[in-house]
Design a protein around this nucleic acid. Structure first.
Length: 423
RNA sequence: GGAGAGGUGACUGAGUGGUCGAAGGUGCUCGAUUGGAAAUCGAGUGUACGUGUUGAGCGUACCGAGGGUUCGAAUCCCUCCCUCUCCGCCA
């Protein structure tokens, strides 16, 4: 959510952001509601002041035993008018707020303007895109062959787009989670959290999943709870409606959660195997920082995610998303794609974003720079560190050996009970 | 799921219809005192919105949330949420 005063003062900047992000938002409607509302506030406040003053007089008269019926009947009418104003303002506020939630964040000046992923800009590449064997097969084949992946079982249980790991496959998943969290807590200074995997409507709205993406969320109607689409939702909301005391920021968290996404409307060949699933594991990093440092923090965030892939010796590339590919709430975002030799494709395993104060304003997350100073909104950032299934794909495909087995990356072996190869 | 208790400012804790944005205490900030500190004394100490010759002032709102009663609600009524205690159930 943007500052309404900012929108009022810089409508052209906001209009450009909406266009660059290819969003549809009724800015003019918002501005006119805002103007109408402020006019009503002035009138209603005047009436309320009159009522407050007169109420005090009525109290005095009553105390002295004098007749107060004249001001009372007059105030009865004033109150009726106030009620009318309050009702009009309430409905106007609701409409205004609904529109406010549809205004996207403004891209940072360093973000390239573009229409879709074709216009994203390559920042750097790491490692050689290759495999241990000459002609690696796709992960679903090698996984089924080795008995570590049972997709038909997952389909039987929950339908297509779900995963069932077996044996060393399941251990590999668990090892990756532990490996990533350990690196981030022990070497990168993050604090581990294990949050709820469901979130309520307020939490989902605070981070920006609602109202726009409701149809992509799994929803428990009975309790009006949503399965988390990313740890970003529960972890960002840890500090919702808080003012963090001086010295508290920067706060850095890392969390493992499963992520649930309906992926409604996603069809095509990139949905094969583990590439696009409804439930996947992810280790996510989040930061709450001072505004002045947020772009430096974004760079280290990306570096922290890259460190995971470097340890696993998986080739990857980093891209800056252009305005058209940038998500609704982000001001700037880097995507990291890992190379998967079997399917011969770059797969997105991390998205590292700076939301500036967009989520913080929406969620009421502030900090006090020093004792006695005015509270300011923090800047929030988050990035995957990293998403599991596509990392598993890369391991199954890039570490495939000529005999159809899988070599375990050195960094993972301590977490795999020393297992060096799956065969 | 059943029964009960409770939600007030950074914290603690008063307040059952008007003089309450809210006593007292603690903490914090500034000042006095001191060689320095403690103690003591004095002053100050929320957020949001609006208005404004723009950060002085003024106004409005906020005592878990939302409604209602009333000229007037922290105080009375209703609904919901959350916390705690006991019982039941259970990993």
């Amino acid at each position: 959510m943007l500052d309404l005063k900012y929108i009022r003062g810089n409508p052209d900047v906001v209009r450009k952001a909406i266009a660059d992000k290819r969003e549809a938002a009724d800015l003019d409607g918002l501005l006119s509601f805002d103007e109408e509302l402020r006019a009503l506030i002035v009138k209603a406040d005047e009436l309320k002041q009159e009522r407050n003053v007169e109420s005090e007089r009525i109290a005095e008269l009553t105390k002295k035993g004098e007749d107060a019926s004249e001001p009372i009947s007059r105030m009865r009418q004033v109150s009726a008018r106030i009620k009318e104003y309050d009702e009009r303002m309430a409905s106007l506020r609701a409409k205004l707020h609904a529109l406010e939630l549809t205004i996207p964040n403004i891209p940072h000046e360093s973000v390239p303007v573009g229409t879709d992923e074709e216009d994203n800009v390559l920042v750097r590449e790491w490692g050689e895109p290759r495999s241990l064997c000459a002609s690696p097969v796709p992960h679903w084949e090698v996984g089924e062959n080795l008995g570590i992946l049972n997709l038909p079982a997952a389909a039987k249980i929950a339908g297509s787009g779900f995963i069932c790991f077996v044996g060393l496959g399941a251990l590999l998943e668990r090892a990756l989670i532990r490996f990533m969290i350990d690196v981030h807590t022990k070497e990168h200074g993050y604090t581990e959290v294990s949050p709820p995997f469901v979130a309520n409507r307020d939490a989902m709205t605070g981070t920006g999943q609602l109202p726009k993406l409701e149809s992509d969320m799994y929803h428990c109607g009975e309790d009006d709870l949503f399965l988390v689409p990313t740890a970003e939702v529960p972890v960002t909301n840890i500090h919702r409606d808080e003012i963090m005391e001086p010295g508290r920021v920067p706060v850095r968290y890392v969390a493992y959660t499963p992520c649930f996404r309906r992926e409604a409307g996603s069809y095509g060949k990139d949905t094969r195997g583990l590439m696009r699933v409804h439930q996947f594991d992810k280790v996510e990093m989040l930061k709450f920082v001072e505004p002045e440092t947020s772009y430096d923090e974004l760079e280290t965030l990306v570096a922290n995610a890259e460190a995971i892939l470097q340890r696993l010796e998986l080739p990857y590339r980093v891209k800056t998303l252009c305005t058209g590919d940038l998500s609704f709430a982000a001001a700037k975002c880097y995507d990291i794609d890992v190379w998967a030799a079997g399917v011969g494709a770059w797969l997105e395993v991390s998205s590292c974003s700076n939301f500036e104060d967009f989520q913080a304003r929406r969620s009421g997350i502030r900090y006090r720079p020093a004792e006695g100073e005015k509270a300011r909104f923090v800047h929030t950032l988050n990035g995957s560190g990293v998403a599991l299934p596509r990392t598993v794909i890369a391991i199954l495909e890039n570490y495939q050996t000529a005999n159809g087995g899988i070599t375990i990356p050195d960094a993972l072996r301590p977490y795999m009970d020393g297992v060096a190869e799956i065969s």
